[in-house]
Design a protein around this nucleic acid. Structure first.
Lengths: 106, 106
DNA sequence: CCGTTAGTTCGACTATAGTCGAACTAACGG
DNA sequence: CCGTTAGTTCGACTATAGTCGAACTAACGG
């Protein structure tokens, strides 16, 4: 299985990033990756079938949020934090902060 | 024509906000409103038919980004900056900054 | 080699968003 | 009142995203 294509930092598009993060499942994945860095897909499935999860990871990769590295049998996913920071400083942090806000009890 | 419903700050949802902003036309509207505060829909149409524009404004209103006030014949739109700030501090600013980044020449 | 694990690809389906023309509506202006 | 302006609502259409099962693939483990 080949490695994946990942867009360059300079090719990341704001609209794609926002779109990718507007799905609750994908935002949840990004949040988990932010806490626990390289992680295979399996623990992030959350009950969904593999084909759905695979689709969401593809969206995250195309947007530039996630890098997937093939390591033996598993695919290790990590957030492209530095590259996102260089392209859109402060953006990811603000969105992650907003997501935590939302979790807080009223 | 009645006034519109606008969600309370506490009811704004991150996923709806990100979704609303992931459309280039809507993001452009928000950016223009950020610069020039209360504005009717007309100057923001950008060549689209009214029905399309109306649809996008409805999405922006439902997400909580824009407030529309009926003033005589025109509908004045403004960004709900303070309310967004109270709900998700720094979020709108980060997204607007990212949008300007993207405009910059390579 | 063969089974297993981890994830992708394919295809069919459903649902939802965006697009636009046409008809409508609300308030102003004279 | 009547025309105009500004925008909404409706309905039909198209396109795209998400969902999932089934078949596939790549690499490890023994």
């Amino acid at each position: 299985m080949k490695q994946y294509d990942h867009p360059l930092a300079q090719d990341m598009q704001l609209s794609c990033l926002l779109y990718a993060l507007s799905d609750p499942f994908r935002l949840a994945v990004v949040r988990k990756l932010a806490v626990c860095q390289p992680q295979p897909c399996a623990p992030l499935q959350d009950g969904r079938p593999k084909s759905s999860v695979s689709h969401h990871f593809a969206v995250l990769r195309k947007a530039g949020l996630v890098r997937t590295e093939v390591v033996g049998v598993t695919h290790m996913n990590s957030l492209r934090e530095q590259e996102l920071e260089s392209r859109f400083p402060g953006l990811l942090a603000a969105i992650l902060a907003a997501a935590s806000m939302e979790d807080m009890p009223a």
